[in-house]
Design a protein around this nucleic acid. Structure first.
Lengths: 197, 197
DNA sequence: CCTACCGATCGGTAGG
DNA sequence: CCTACCGATCGGTAGG
């Protein structure tokens, strides 16, 4: 109802991009959501692309913070992986619209910005690989672990959560993160024994 | 170059929807890819929506076949889960464009068709839950396993693969499926021992 | 399968 | 922040 600022516009865009996709959202749609004319948005933003850039940059910076934290974090590989899992899920769950826009719409960014985002996420993923290979050397993880593959699988699992996790549901982030960590470290099998081949 | 039929058009649409998204693909784009005018596509198809319907239905029927196979499949829970993992990955990897369109663009289907697709995937997911809970009863999986959650996590992991798996790369589907199965059953930990808290 | 076209909507601008 | 508008493009149709 009150006068809108750029932050309001970006927040609304974030929600619409998550639900309708970047190309499925028009500036007039977005204006309607904010109670404005579509053309009025151009007093806050210079282009539609800019809105997507803002959303993706915000998400990127969260992942980068987590990466930096874990890069300099002491502790075992298991502890560091645990922190990555929890931190990653927290980012996704805290703002699911931002997460979905980041995961699904980054590819529609102008080339330069998209390259930046991709490079950032690559270096983020490198932290996962570093933690996994550290744990492999220390004996915390399997010696035959394919670190590159495992990092992809772990990130796939994590990035899928915004599709089904309901932050209003019975399961909170702490439990989710702990379940994910449990699944990834000890697997589905019952505790002591192994599968017979 | 030669005259196109409906199958060609759907196949081209599948590729473009995967890469540009449904709303990011115009009928003229699609025509250009096929060497046709955009308007010529309407001799093969009655609407743009219909193309997406076709792609999603094809993918749906593949998942349904796998579900039916595993529903009536004898064997241990581990064997059945293994088949689900392998079959699911095969569907995703065999036609990554179809998979990506199914996973990302189904939400843009007309309401009725979307509901159908969602219902189908729900019943598909139920097979995962059934196998997991069967394995929990039989002692193959942990007694404390949250079956609903585990099914979501397993499917998240699987559905993330089209984002990074390169079918031309060194890793083939069999190895991928076996690695995924290994990760999900025994986890990242080294074989015999457990994590000390 | 093309040409020629329809009304609607797109991202965006000028001027206030 | 709105009104009024721009050229471009959208999904789709008529007629051949």
């Amino acid at each position: 109802m009150s006068r809108k600022n750029r932050t309001d516009v970006v927040a609304a865009a974030c929600g619409m991009f998550a639900e309708q996709g970047f190309h499925g959202t028009s500036m007039r749609d977005l204006g309607k959501k904010l109670g404005l004319m579509g053309s009025s948005l151009y007093s806050h933003v210079v282009s539609k692309d800019e809105l997507l850039v803002d959303v993706v940059r915000e998400a990127s910076s969260r992942f980068q913070s987590l990466a930096n934290e874990v890069r300099t974090m002491p502790g075992t590989a298991i502890e560091r992986l645990s922190r990555l899992i929890h931190g990653h899920l927290q980012i996704l769950v805290e703002d699911p619209n931002q997460a979905r826009t980041f995961l699904n719409e980054t590819r529609f960014l102008p080339e330069l910005e998209r390259d930046t985002a991709v490079a950032m996420f690559d270096s983020y993923q490198q932290v996962f690989r570093d933690v996994l290979s550290g744990g492999r050397e220390s004996g915390e993880f399997r010696a035959d672990l394919d670190v590159h593959l495992a990092a992809n699988l772990v990130l796939s699992l994590l990035n899928g959560t915004p599709r089904w996790f309901n932050s209003g549901g019975a399961l909170n982030i702490e439990s989710l993160a702990s379940e994910v960590h449990h699944l990834l470290t000890v697997g589905l099998n019952p505790d002591p024994q192994r599968t017979p081949a």
